[in-house]
Computed example of a mutant assay.
Amino acid sequence: MKYRVILPALLLALGAARPASAQCCGYGMSYDNVVVWPQPDLRVPVPSVTEAKKAKPVLAKAKPAVKENARKLSMHFPPAQRAQVEQYYVESMATYLKLEKKMGWAPRDMAGGLAAFLVGNYMVLKERNVSDEEYAAVASQLRAQQGMQKMGDNADQEKLRDVFEQSAMVGVFMAVAYMAHEQKPQPSAVYDNLRNAARENLQLVLKTDPARLNIDKNGMRFQ
């Protein structure tokens, strides 16, 4: 996943931010949205090309609410930085939609947004880039799982939209932060704060220690 490097102010904001544990995990989604997440079953292998084509994508069909979801995510940052961070999240969603098109996925495919969340936080935690091939494998792995398919039966389409948008925003946001750090390493205290947030984000949705998580061309596995 490759993104443009944003202003150093982003990492300064990350360094100053503190998780609001009652509402979110690190720089992640609201807890209510995390509850909607289909917990990935990492025992399920990445489907074959034939199997992947059979998995009907679950789409976020409600009217987009990018600005509102960006505002919600920005509330987990210090007040003086919220307007700037909100704009970063809006830009992150625009970047995600371009990536989604590049990958050839159906517009607003839930699996792509959730995979972005996992991959972006993984990049920060493990301090390594993730290729498009690896990212696609994670998305395919999620798309074919029963938990993902059941999401399409959820009557609350606005909730699904919020999960999709916030997942994609946070994933790209974290990936961009990692890429910025890779180009210009930040003080250890700043990056440690970011890494801790990534660890908490992943633990919240995976329900286990993300230190064992590995992502490669075969998708996600616990080592």
Rank of each mutant, 00 (worst) to 15 (best):
Ser48Gly: 12
Val49Met: 14
Thr50Tyr: 10
Ala52Val: 14
Ala52Ser: 15
Lys56Gly: 11
Pro57Trp: 13
Pro57Met: 02
Val58His: 04
Val58Leu: 02
Leu59Asn: 08
Ala60Asp: 03
Ala60Trp: 00
Ala60Met: 01
Ala62Ser: 05
Ala62Val: 02
Lys63Trp: 02
Val66Lys: 04
Glu68Pro: 02
Glu68Ala: 05
Glu68Cys: 04
Ala70Arg: 02
Arg71Ile: 12
Arg71Gln: 15
Lys72Ile: 12
Ser74Gly: 07
Ser74Cys: 08
Met75Cys: 12
Met75Asn: 07
His76Met: 02
Pro79Ser: 08
Pro79Leu: 12
Gln81Lys: 14
Gln81Val: 13
Arg82Lys: 15
Arg82Met: 10
Ala83Val: 03
Gln84Cys: 11
Gln84Asn: 11
Val85Phe: 07
Glu86Ser: 06
Glu86Ala: 10
Gln87Ile: 06
Tyr89Cys: 06
Val90Phe: 09
Glu91Met: 11
Glu91Asp: 05
Glu91Pro: 06
Ser92Asn: 09
Ser92Gln: 06
Ala94Gly: 06
Thr95Tyr: 13
Tyr96Thr: 00
Tyr96Trp: 15
Lys98Arg: 15
Lys98Ala: 15
Lys98Trp: 06
Glu100Cys: 02
Lys101Ile: 02
Lys101Pro: 09
Lys101Thr: 15
Lys102Arg: 15
Met103Glu: 11
Gly104Cys: 14
Gly104Phe: 12
Trp105Pro: 06
Ala106Cys: 11
Pro107Asp: 15
Arg108Ile: 03
Met110Ala: 07
Met110Ile: 15
Ala111Asn: 07
Gly112Ala: 05
Gly112Gln: 01
Gly112Val: 00
Gly113Pro: 02
Leu114Ser: 08
Leu114Pro: 01
Phe117Gly: 00
Val119Tyr: 14
Val119Arg: 14
Gly120Phe: 09
Asn121Gly: 04
Asn121Ser: 06
Tyr122Asn: 00
Met123Cys: 06
Val124Asp: 00
Val124Ser: 02
Leu125Asp: 01
Glu127Trp: 02
Glu127Gln: 01
Arg128Gln: 04
Asn129Pro: 03
Asn129His: 11
Ser131Tyr: 13
Glu133Lys: 05
Tyr135Ile: 00
Ala136Cys: 09
Gln141Trp: 09
Leu142Lys: 04
Arg143Val: 08
Gln146Ser: 10
Gly147Lys: 08
Gly147Asn: 13
Met148Cys: 08
Met148Tyr: 03
Met148Phe: 00
Gln149Phe: 03
Gln149Ser: 04
Gln149Gly: 01
Gln149Met: 07
Lys150Arg: 15
Lys150Ser: 13
Met151Val: 10
Asp153Trp: 05
Asp153Leu: 03
Asp153Ile: 03
Asn154Trp: 00
Ala155Gln: 06
Ala155Phe: 10
Ala155Ile: 05
Gln157Asp: 14
Gln157Arg: 14
Gln157Met: 11
Gln157Val: 12
Glu158Ile: 10
Glu158Gln: 13
Glu158Asn: 11
Lys159Val: 13
Lys159Trp: 04
Arg161Ala: 05
Val163Tyr: 02
Glu165Lys: 00
Glu165His: 03
Glu165Val: 04
Ser167Pro: 08
Ala168His: 08
Val170Thr: 04
Gly171Lys: 03
Val172Asp: 05
Met174Ser: 02
Ala175Tyr: 13
Ala175Phe: 12
Met179Thr: 06
Glu182Ala: 10
Glu182Cys: 09
Gln183Phe: 01
Gln183Asp: 13
Lys184Ala: 15
Lys184Pro: 10
Pro185Thr: 02
Gln186Asp: 13
Ser188Pro: 08
Ala189Asp: 04
Ala189Thr: 03
Val190Thr: 15
Tyr191Gly: 09
